[in-house]
Design a protein around this nucleic acid. Sequence first.
DNA 1: TTTAATAGTAAACATCTGTTTACCATAATC
DNA 2: GATTATGGTAAACAGATGTTTACTATTAAA
Lengths: 201, 201
Amino acid sequence: MEGLTPRQEEVLDFVLEALERRGYPPSVREICDALGLSSTRGALRHLEALERKGFISRASGARAIQVRDTLRGAAAYLPLVGEVPAGPLRHASEEVEEWLPVPARWGGEGRFLLRVRGESMVGDGIRDGDLVVVDPGPEARDGEVVVALVDGEATVKRLRRRKGAVELEASNPDYPTLRVEKGEAEVRLAGRVVSLLRDRV
Amino acid sequence: MEGLTPRQEEVLDFVLEALERRGYPPSVREICDALGLSSTRGALRHLEALERKGFISRASGARAIQVRDTLRGAAAYLPLVGEVPAGPLRHASEEVEEWLPVPARWGGEGRFLLRVRGESMVGDGIRDGDLVVVDPGPEARDGEVVVALVDGEATVKRLRRRKGAVELEASNPDYPTLRVEKGEAEVRLAGRVVSLLRDRV
DNA sequence: TTTAATAGTAAACATCTGTTTACCATAATC
DNA sequence: GATTATGGTAAACAGATGTTTACTATTAAA
């Protein structure tokens, strides 16, 4: 990838800053205003250079600037919930505390974020206060880390399949493993834990 | 917050989908096209309702739709690097593998992402392959988890201050603690580890 | 029954916005 | 010295875009 001149870099920084500040790209004239240019042709030359060098692309239409993914990685927005939802959440859903940006590759149908409570899984590097990304569904393979609902309460555990039962295994010796006989109604699987965010190390 | 009617929710979903797909909001006419409206007044009524109900705000200018943060949380974009950078990274910097979206509150001047190599910190819930957010700077307090450069190699360890020296302590008994006498030139502090992302649990 | 809210239509208009044409200056490269 | 690239100016123009005015229909609430 070709390098940028200082002026081109200024334009790129402005575009990224506008996106971050207000959520939509600047117009050609706004770029002029920001860089002290009196002619839109000047700003357009810079945009053309940025596009030629692969930093942005431009569609037709007003403010149709798209920044290359390696410069501003695509995000998915996952809902942080207090309780395991019954199905995919609507954007306007009031169960959601906030929709948090995560790398786009963490996205998927119906995925949500849940805050871990307790230290039962510290042996697997999952700590109190962590946010886990949950891929919802009633199935998981032996050995996977899951969110299960036990008497309506969500718990994060490793699933172990045993003859005639499954076990929800803690990875902290201070916590018990829960054995679940087949068909027990008050235990169900909410989904698999696929990724994790830790706000504070 | 007032609820949305089904049609209003359709408009909101379209706005969010356009932002996610291409990085900039739709125009009023694009909303018309998407919802099968033949009059821009109709789309405008929906946008006015979404604004009145607090889901979006509208500035002047084309495509000037801003989505409320609880619906689409603000993101910061942090550079993922292979090696500890010498200073804040420019957007066009070639040392950066990608700029990843993280929650905006994780952002800060010069912060970067580094991939953890090794199992030396598993006792603290930091595992091989994790991405840590590093707040750069030469100082850290006793007990904080830091990124240090030892003979030019980055290592994540807990910093302990002892009389006349500091120690870089592993939290895995299989790994040694490194004792650093004052003034040793080949060890320096790159920054403090503040947050963490784990792609795959 | 009346009123209000929602949801839409059509048309016109003002403003925003991108692009083009034509030109000039400076610096770097050949 | 000539050419190219970069960086800019001015002006004009075409199209995109948001907003307004005026109106209608349906549904829900008072």
